[in-house]
Every structure is written in structure tokens, then in C-alpha cells.
Amino acid sequence: MRVLYGLAALLLGLLLWQLLVWITGTPHFILPSPLRVAQAAYASRALILEHATVTATEVVLGLILGTILGAITAIQLASSQWAQRLLLPILVFTQAVPVFALAPILTLWFGYGMASKIVMAVLIIYFPVTSAFHDGLTRVDSGLLDLARTMGATRWQVMRRIRIPHALPSLGTGLRLAAVYAPIGAVIGEWVGASKGLGYLMLLANGRVKIDLMFASLIALALLTVVLHKLVAILADHLSAYASGSSLQKGLGPKK
């Protein structure tokens, strides 16, 4: 049923787009019709796929690296008071610097290849992941921490066996945000300086007034983001299910 509604919404969107083109009579080099875009997409499918693969790789690597870095930072912040007092203000301050403004510098430092785009994606998702996970790590029921203390728990064991599992749903929330932000980072990086990727292809098509190809690239980028977001949402759901114990329950016979 949901798939049907999704398809209906897509058709409606395409219809409105087509109507807009018909009614306003906009020339195709300003707003191409959906059909033209589809034709362009089909004709340049190999080209789009090649550049989409580059962007997807940048985004996925950025997402993985950013998540690892963010998770490590969050654990570090949550496990020591001085780290929290010292690093948290720095972290918040770095968020005042727009990442987009850093793009030229990153291109200068990391070159025109994938590296600078991956760094962009990492930078843009690092904070949401860190802050969401840190939030979960520090919002543990104080009764639990008291109990752990009476049991003679070590700091690291409390982190590993109580705080981290408890914070997994929060990490999932951070990851959902990251999945939307990471492609933005990669594309900005590609706009500033690249020879591959969907962002580069869009600029290239724009420069050659191939607006239909530009739209096709845009749609490919949107599809990429949607798929990524769905995959990350599934992962986040699994993290939440684990923390609430319901994944175990499924694995171990019928629910009561």
C-alpha cells in the first residue's frame, strides 16, 4: 500500500512538473520537461552512473569515517570530565565556522580528488553524530550508575556495558541526520574543485547549457540520498531494537 502511495505521489509530481512546463511555455534550457530529462538520463546513463559511483563512494566513506570519529569523540567526552569541559566548547565553536567556507581550503590541502570531498563529508556529519551519541551516553539513569558503583564496576566496563548500549538509539538519530548531510558535504566539495562526481557533472552540464543533463544528475543525487537515508534508517531501527531488547526477543521464539 505504501509503495502504491509513493508511486502515486511520484506520478503527481511529474504531472505537475509537465503542466508547469506546458502552461508557462518555459524554454527547455531553463526548465526541461520530465520527458526530456528522462531521455537525457537514459542517453547519458553510463556517464551519470560513473559520476554517481564517485559521489556515492565519497559519501559512504565520509559517513563511515565521520561516524567512527564522532563516536570516539563522544565516548572520550563522556568518559572524562576534563575532556568534556575542555573539548566541548571547542567543538561548539568549530560549528560556528560554516563548513562550506572551508571547502576551498580543503581542496587546497587535500587536492582535487576524492580525499577533499570525504573530508568535507566527515566535517559536516562529525558534529551531529558526536552530539547525539554524547547525549545518549550521558543520559543514563543515575540509579544504574549507582548500582554499577556498588558492584565495583570499572569506568570502561560501565561505558561498554551500560552507557554505549544505552546510547545506541541516540547514535541512530545522529546517523539519520548524517545520512542527509553527508551528500551535501560531498557535492559542495565537488563544486569547489573536482574532475569527477555528480556535483562536477552538474556544473559541467550547466556550463554547456545541457540543462536536461543537469536535472538528470540532480535526480540521481536525490535518489542516492534517499537510498542512503533508507539504509541508515534500517540500521538505526536495528540499534533501537537492540537497546530495547526487542531484537533479542525476535531471535528467541515467540513473544509473550
Binding site: L147, R161, I162
Partner: peptide, 21 residues
């Protein structure tokens, strides 16, 4: 009760030992 929802009843019972490593 302060039990951990992601652990089984048995794993909850031995939490103290686990927390001490």
C-alpha cells in the same frame, strides 16, 4: 529493578561480574 533491557535475564543476573571485568 534497574535491569538492562538489552540483556537476557541470565546476563542481567551476572552484570556485577561483567562490570568488574
Amino acid at each position: 529493578d534497574l535491569l538492562l533491557p538489552w540483556l537476557t535475564v541470565l546476563e542481567n543476573t551476572v552484570l556485577g561480574a561483567r562490570l568488574r571485568g
